[in-house]
Structures are given as C-alpha cells and as structure tokens.
Amino acid sequence: TTTLTYTDEEEARKAAEELKRRGITFTYTKRGGTWEIRIK
C-alpha cells in the first residue's frame, strides 16, 4: 500500500483524477487539514 499525503486540496484532487484516468484503485480520506490517497 502506498499512501500519498497532501496539504493542498487542489493537488490531492489532481492526483486522484490522474489515478482514476489510469484505472488505479485508491481510497481518498480527509484527515484534519490533510488529504490522504491510499493506493491498494
């Protein structure tokens, strides 16, 4: 499992869109002031 952490929502959203485009499965979690993208 790879976890990407972002403090900028815009960056996190761009990363999530890129992963979706590649067909990669991930979970997206907001934790306080950070956003976590966990790639399975």
Rank of each mutant, 00 (worst) to 15 (best):
R13A: 07
K14R: 12
T5R: 12
T1H: 12
T29C: 09
K30M: 08
T29Y: 10
R13V: 10
R13L: 15
T7I: 08
L19P: 00
R31Y: 10
E11I: 06
G23I: 01
I24L: 08
T2Q: 11
R21T: 06
A16Y: 06
K30A: 10
T29K: 08
A12H: 01
Y6L: 02
G32R: 05
K14G: 06
K20T: 14
W35P: 01
R13C: 08
K20Y: 11
T27W: 07
R22W: 06
Y28R: 02
E10P: 04
E36I: 15
R38Q: 14
E18V: 07
E17G: 07
A15F: 11
E17A: 13
G33F: 11
K30S: 08
E36R: 04
R22Y: 06
A12I: 02
T34V: 15
Y6T: 02
A16M: 15
Y28W: 12
G32N: 14
E9M: 05
T29G: 06
E9F: 07
T34D: 03
E36T: 09
R38L: 12
T29L: 11
E10M: 13
K40R: 12
G32V: 05
F26C: 02
R13Y: 07
R38V: 15
Y6V: 01
A16G: 05
L4H: 06
I39S: 02
I24S: 02
T5K: 09
G32F: 06
I37M: 02
I39G: 01
I37S: 00
R22M: 12
T7W: 11
G33R: 08
I24E: 03
T7M: 09
E18S: 09
Y6M: 02
E36D: 02
K40T: 15
T34F: 15
T1Y: 15
W35Q: 01
A15G: 03
T3S: 05
I24Q: 03
K30D: 11
T3F: 10
T5H: 09
D8A: 06
K30L: 05
R22I: 06
R38C: 11
T34E: 08
G32D: 14
K30P: 05
L4F: 14
I24V: 11
K20P: 00
G32H: 08
E18R: 08
K30F: 13
R21V: 06
F26H: 03
T7H: 12
D8R: 09
R31N: 14
W35R: 01
G33Y: 09
L4E: 02
Y6I: 02
L4Q: 04
E36Q: 07
L4P: 01
G23M: 03
K20L: 13
I39F: 12
G33I: 08
T27N: 04
E17R: 12
T1P: 10
R31C: 09
I24F: 10
G32I: 05
G33L: 13
G23Y: 02
K20V: 12
T3I: 15
E9T: 02
L4N: 03
E11T: 11
T1I: 14
G32E: 12
E18G: 06
T29Q: 10
R31H: 11
K20A: 13
R22A: 10
K40C: 14
E9S: 04
K40E: 15
E9V: 05
I24P: 00
K20F: 11
R21E: 07
T25G: 08
R13K: 14
E36W: 06
A16W: 04
